[in-house]
């Protein structure tokens, strides 16, 4: 079975980083994974998205069109992708930035004020990881040990000081 993730928001919100963390979680679990960014002007503040596939078998198309799991961090991305989530799929929405609510009964939506939570807990810029924490709790994707290993792999050597902050963001997400 292939689990397809789509993460979308603005460039600079850490959309690609969440994708990388998800990919490492899959890799550490011994799965096949693929990570595909939208590239180009997104890096300069435009909308940005990232496709991640985790599977027990080799991955065909790495481009996720209909995700099982969606993370959205701005309204344009919400408008674009909420209707694409598969029946029975889950969406994780940063409700500090998106004030819309889905009325689709076929998908399970979680609204987390992630940007505000990051601000209140003095881990600014980690709204993305808070959303991931919620995702991990709701999907049972991985245990905390695996998540920690994935964080250690994903955080670049120069930013090793941020590993604990990332883990706190995961916990905050799971608790909300």
């Amino acid at each position: 079975m292939t689990r397809e993730f789509l993460i979308a928001g603005f460039g600079g919100q850490g959309i690609l980083f969440v994708g990388k963390l998800l990919s490492y979680i899959g890799l550490i679990d011994g799965k096949e994974v693929s990570w595909l960014p939208s590239y180009g002007p997104a890096m300069r503040g435009g909308t940005c998205n990232c496709s991640v596939c985790i599977s027990g078998s080799p991955i065909g198309s790495p481009l996720v069109v209909n995700p099982d799991i969606l993370i959205v961090m701005n309204t344009p991305s919400y408008d674009k992708f909420i209707g694409a989530v598969k029946k029975g799929g889950k969406a994780f929405v940063d409700s500090s930035l998106v004030d819309k609510r889905s009325e689709n009964p076929d998908i399970e939506c979680h609204y987390i004020p992630a940007t505000n939570l990051a601000h209140d807990n003095e881990i600014k810029g980690m709204a993305n990881i808070i959303l991931l924490g919620k995702l991990i709790k709701e999907t049972g994707l991985a245990g905390l040990e695996t998540v920690r290993k994935a964080v250690e792999k994903s955080v670049s050597a120069g930013k090793a000081g941020l590993i604990e902050a990332n883990m706190r963001a995961i916990e905050i997400g799971a608790a909300n």
Partner: peptide, 10 residues
């Protein structure tokens, strides 16, 4: 192509 160049896999 751009897709293969930009994507990450193990």
């Amino acid at each position: 192509d751009g897709l293969l160049g930009q994507m990450m896999e193990p």
